[in-house]
Design a protein around this nucleic acid. Sequence first.
RNA 1: GUCCCUAUCGUCUAGAGGCCUAGGACAAUACCCUUUCACGGUAUGAACCGGGGUUCGAAUCCCCGUGGGGACGCCA
Length: 463
Amino acid sequence: MTVRTRFAPSPTGYLHIGGARTALFAWAYARRHGGQFILRIEDTDVARSTPEAVQAILDGMQWLGLAHDEGPYYQMQRMPRYKEVIGQMLAAGTAYHCYTSPEELDRLREEQMAKKEKPRYDGRWRPEPGKLLPAPPAGVAPVVRFRNPTEGVVAWDDGVKGRIEIANAELDDFIIARADGTPTYNFCVVVDDWDMGITHVIRGDDHVNNTPRQINVLEALGAQVPQYAHLSMILGDDGQKLSKRRNSVAVTDYDERGYLPEALLNYLARLGWSHGDDEVFSMEQFVQWFDLDHITASAAQFNTEKLDWLNAQYLKSAADTRLAGEAARRLARRGIDPEAGAPLEKVAALYKDRATNLNELADALEPFCVVVHPSAEMIATHLTEAARGALKVLRDKLADCAWEKAAIGAVMKETLAACGMKMPQVAIPLRVVLLGQPQSPAIDAVVEVLGRTEVLARLDQYA
RNA sequence: GUCCCUAUCGUCUAGAGGCCUAGGACAAUACCCUUUCACGGUAUGAACCGGGGUUCGAAUCCCCGUGGGGACGCCA
């Protein structure tokens, strides 16, 4: 049996971080077992589904690099099939028409809540041997309900949570088709998973309660029940449920905020799953190691600081050209011409182990592309008479030394000796003049990449 | 309210009855490195929710509390 997993988002918004982790785990499981990963768009909620959201999900998956082997399938395109199955169930007596109006159901629910009972459909239209059903009211379009077993328990061995048992007495006859004939989620999922030969359903924890219903339908259909694995939730940095207002929930936000997809993926992999003490690993490694046994059953809190650290690790080992390209893209968005100054690849090499994200990297590269204007305060504190004198000496030496780091360093030492100063006394003013800030990587390296013309031009303004 | 899930440092987690004086990582603190700021290195502090069992022995198994989460739609 080849493993087939699926990711089945509903296109009512962007791909969010919890969905991304679910997708990652389902994807990894299929990859790990040489199976297929299927993408299915659950768009039966016509009112809330949008083509933009479908695109956002596809974009998010692509940015993460989670490629599907089949699909995307769209549930709206499978309507005839759902209707066919509903017809079969109606004929077989595993489903029936119900004429109770939404208003009546609301009233029923309120009454039950008032009596502190679990709200549920009371089965008034459910056919039973010897039971006399009311006459169908005229002009009312019925919904179709699943005839759920009333006795016994539904049980499954959850890949993450272990054995879960729920009594059928807790379940009611849920609606599988609306009055307008469109099928509902719990039903579509079942038909899809069945038709698509899904062997392992890896999804969010919020579906645990749907599972017994789905199993019952599967059994009524005579279908094979897949293995289920329910992933717990991801909580926000503040320990609260993720919310659009307080947290970055869209995967694309992370791109915007300067995270590398592999860093996010690595972080997400470790959120709720572990492999001993391993923290930093490639997706190839992850796929080899991934298993359901080591998934945590309890909810995990998102920790931006750790993501930042991971991102910094990946930034350090990323190729200079890639980093330069990413930074250039960000600089361009700020209206800065990334081609205007020093070669960005070389600058990026200088800064990549000091940045935690690509925006910070872009910040660092900016002074290499534009004319810098140190603040008056910075000029006052750092560009003293003595400093300016030393910079003048240095300027003349830089004007005709060999242009490579060692030679530049040597020239700086000569300047120190000539002026009787210590390195920081010259290096810091030089940084201010060259970059508009008192900190930078090794100053001789900075001078080298900035280039002689630019260095002399900037020095001439102050020295 | 009912049902379901869950509980190890601040956070992510290791831990499958003795290997636990509870390990790693992020964060914190200190020191080292240093041409500034970072990076990096070293070190330190920091946890088994509470109560009952089971057992020679429990972070690990069971029960009850408590905390947290989820579900209870003609949403997905």
